[in-house]
């Protein structure tokens, strides 16, 4: 359940941001979480509900966008990712491939009023 620690970070970041801009109330927090991160969406939502209570985000909506894995080979460009069968060796040329997407762990924006 490291989602608790992660959510603590989100609420601190969002709270700091609201303070910096002179707002008391956070109305929405938008996160982008890559599929290839050890984070469970439901656990993150649970952590948010459990921890938002005495923060500026107590009435806020948490929006989580899951970013799908996309793989790119330096030689063959985009290669197919078969869900559940991660293979970072290119099926075409055998080169190690990179994540073009799916490793995100981001607070995209915070709405405040």
């Amino acid at each position: 359940m490291h989602e608790m620690s992660i959510m603590e970070g989100v609420l601190t970041l969002a709270g700091n941001e609201a303070g910096k801009h002179g707002y008391q109330k956070i109305t929405r927090i938008k996160l982008r979480i890559g599929e290839f991160r050890g984070v469970v969406r439901e656990a993150l939502e649970f952590a948010f509900d459990a921890m938002k209570g005495d923060t500026a985000a107590k009435d806020a909506v948490l929006e989580i966008e899951t970013v799908a894995i996309r793989l790119e080979c330096p030689n063959c460009k985009e290669i197919e990712y078969i869900p559940g069968d991660l293979n970072l060796l290119c099926p075409g040329c055998g080169s190690p491939v990179e994540f073009a997407a799916g490793r995100e762990m981001q607070v995209e924006y915070v709405d405040m009023e």
Binding site: I6, G9, V10, L13, E17, H21, Y23, T27, L31, M105, Q106, V107, E108, Y109, V110, D111, M112, E113
Partner: peptide, 12 residues
């Protein structure tokens, strides 16, 4: 309503 684009790493 005021929107702040952060695009910040959650693990910052």
């Amino acid at each position: 309503m005021h929107q702040v684009n952060l695009e910040t790493n959650i693990m910052e």
